[in-house]
Design a protein around this nucleic acid. Structure first.
Lengths: 157, 157
DNA sequence: GTTGAAAGCCAGTAACT
DNA sequence: AGTTACTGGCTTTCAAC
């Protein structure tokens, strides 16, 4: 989908606050409310906007412990990767997972209640998987920065 | 702030979709619309819900490159850490940053347009900082999982 | 906390440029 | 693509319970 300057403008604003009334949004981007609404609807329907969510203060979660886990697989076989990815998607403890190049194959961000829950996760998802050569965990003691917005540069068109 | 079962229920639902009409939300949690709305408002006002945002498909960002960077500081001095954290918060390329224990002190998730932009980031933020002993970057070739929701267990009260 | 009702604003549609 | 005019629905209040 082609995004023009106004679309990009809309996305930047909605990434900051998606509860802004359409009337205000329209004014900010210099459009009439229906025209603006139509664009927003299109952005949602086409999947450019994938989800609309409330962000909750993590201090209030029962999962106060965040672990960063690097995983190295035994071999570079596609089916092995696929199977691991499926397991990760099913593991509710994993909030993020990145496949990487370099020393490790995957980096996981895992949120759990306590060490016991983390051990349980490791046993269930990692240790039971014989395709994993090794993994290394480190405890996150603080989340310094967390932003869900992606950078959408204004363009000329 | 004390959260009862209904609050937790509301938060779980809004973390999935914050555009749900209040009427539906109220029905889902078994409350009348005004009572439900009052709770949601309170959750927002008190900061339990910190932000309401649209999530945009990262494929559409101009920053198609994600790098995972581990950073080790020269010494465990609090003022050095503070200064680094401030620099990280100011760096628009950094979308997430976790302070950790273990082999490294920080893990960054950095989104940039291309290698050039990454080099620029490294020069500006990392290489220019003499308190950094070393850092290691790896390229994320795929985001396997990404969830903004935190786990909020139902409770008895 | 619930219910019911009323007010006002906004989303969404339609007709048209 | 866009605007203006209109309708319907929802949010948001307030009352009374």
């Amino acid at each position: 989908m082609k995004l023009d300057r106004i679309d990009r403008n809309i996305l930047t604003l909605l990434q900051e606050n998606n509860r802004i009334p359409n009337i205000e949004l329209a004014e900010e981007v210099g459009l009439s409310p229906p025209a603006c609404l139509k664009r927003v609807k299109q952005l949602r329907d086409s999947g450019v906007i994938s989800q609309d969510v409330s962000l909750v203060n993590p201090e209030l979660s029962d999962n106060k412990m965040t672990m960063l886990v690097s995983v190295e697989m035994e071999r570079d076989r596609k089916d092995i990767y696929k199977q691991f990815q499926a397991a990760i998607r099913n593991a509710s403890e994993v909030t993020q997972c990145y496949q990487t190049t370099g020393n490790y194959d995957f980096i996981l961000i895992v949120c759990v209640r306590d060490i016991l829950a983390f051990e349980h996760f490791i046993d269930r998802v990692l240790r039971s998987n014989s395709n994993i050569r090794k993994f290394q965990s480190s405890l996150s003691i603080r989340r310094i920065k967390y932003s869900t917005a992606i950078n959408i540069e204004p363009c000329e068109t």
